[in-house]
C-alpha cells in the first residue's frame, strides 16, 4: 500500500536533482567514461581544481549504441558499427520478436526481458534514441526514464540511494558521489543480474571449505 502510494512528485524531484547535478561532471568526463568502466572519481590530475567536486555524479552511458561488426583487427580492436548505420536505410523486420530469430548482425544478442520486443524500447525509424511507452523519444543518456516506466519501485529506491551501486562520498557536501545507471549493472536486453562465483573466502583454521560445488 504505502509503496504504491509513494508519490511520483517525490520520485521525480530527486531524480531531476540527480540528473542536473550529474550533468556538469558528466560532460567533463565524457571522454574518459565512454568505456563505461572507468571510475570517474579518478579524474586526470590536471583537471583537479582547488576545491574537489561535490554532489552526486551519475555515470554516463555510451550514447549511440553500437554492435560488434566482423572480426577483431590486428591491433586487437573490435570493429563496431552503430545500429543506425544499417537501420537508417533498412527497415526493421517487425515480424521477429526475439534475438534468436534475428540473424545478420544480431547473432549472440540475448534477449530475456519479459515479454518486451525490440520496438518496445527502440524507435522504428531512429535507432540513435530510445522510445518511451507513450511514443516520446528520449536520448540514450536518459535510459533510466525508460526503465522507470515499468520498474517503479526500483526507480523509487534508486532515487533514495537504496538501489544501485555507488562510490565516493556518502556526505555529498564534502565530496563527489558517483552512481551507476540501470544499464551499468543490468544488460538492457537481458537485465537479470549475472551469476557470480565467490572468489574470496576467508581461510579458517578447522573449518574446511565446502567441497561440493554445483558448477564443476
Amino acid at each position: 500500500m504505502e509503496r504504491t502510494q509513494c508519490p511520483n512528485g517525490r520520485l521525480s524531484r530527486p531524480l531531476l536533482v540527480l540528473a542536473l547535478a550529474g550533468l556538469a561532471p558528466a560532460l567533463a568526463l565524457l571522454l574518459s567514461a565512454c568505456g563505461g568502466d572507468v571510475a570517474p572519481e579518478t579524474a586526470p590530475a590536471g583537471q583537479v581544481a582547488a576545491s574537489a567536486p561535490t554532489g552526486v555524479h551519475i555515470r554516463t552511458v555510451p550514447g549511440v549504441p553500437t554492435i560488434p561488426a566482423g572480426p577483431i583487427d590486428a591491433r586487437g580492436h573490435q570493429a563496431r558499427v552503430a545500429c543506425s548505420t544499417c537501420h537508417s536505410i533498412k527497415a526493421p523486420d517487425t515480424t521477429r520478436k526475439t534475438g534468436a530469430e534475428l540473424t545478420a548482425f544480431h547473432q549472440g544478442l540475448q534477449v530475456a526481458h519479459g515479454s518486451l520486443s525490440c520496438l518496445s524500447c527502440h524507435n522504428e525509424d531512429d535507432y540513435d534514441s530510445l522510445r518511451l511507452a507513450d511514443g516520446h523519444r528520449v536520448p540514450f543518456e536518459r535510459v533510466m526514464d525508460l526503465c522507470a516506466q515499468c520498474h517503479g519501485p526500483q526507480a523509487r529506491d534508486y532515487a533514495h540511494g537504496a538501489h544501485g551501486g555507488m562510490s565516493g562520498y556518502w556526505d555529498t557536501t564534502r565530496g563527489l558521489q558517483t552512481r551507476n545507471q540501470c544499464t551499468h549493472c543490468h544488460a538492457p536486453h537481458a537485465p537479470a543480474y549475472p551469476a557470480m562465483k565467490p572468489t574470496f573466502k576467508p581461510r579458517d583454521r578447522f573449518l574446511p571449505p565446502t567441497r561440493e560445488s554445483n558448477d564443476d
Binding site: 555507488m166 562520498y169 556518502w170 557536501t173 549493472c185
Partner: peptide, 22 residues
C-alpha cells in the same frame, strides 16, 4: 567515513545491496 567517504565494503558491492549514511 569520518572524512565523508563511503565504506570500502559498500563501494565494492556489485549489486548495490548496501546503504550507509547518517
Amino acid at each position: 567515513t569520518r572524512e565523508g567517504r563511503l565504506p570500502a565494503c559498500l563501494e565494492a558491492c556489485p549489486t548495490g545491496a548496501r546503504v550507509f549514511g547518517n
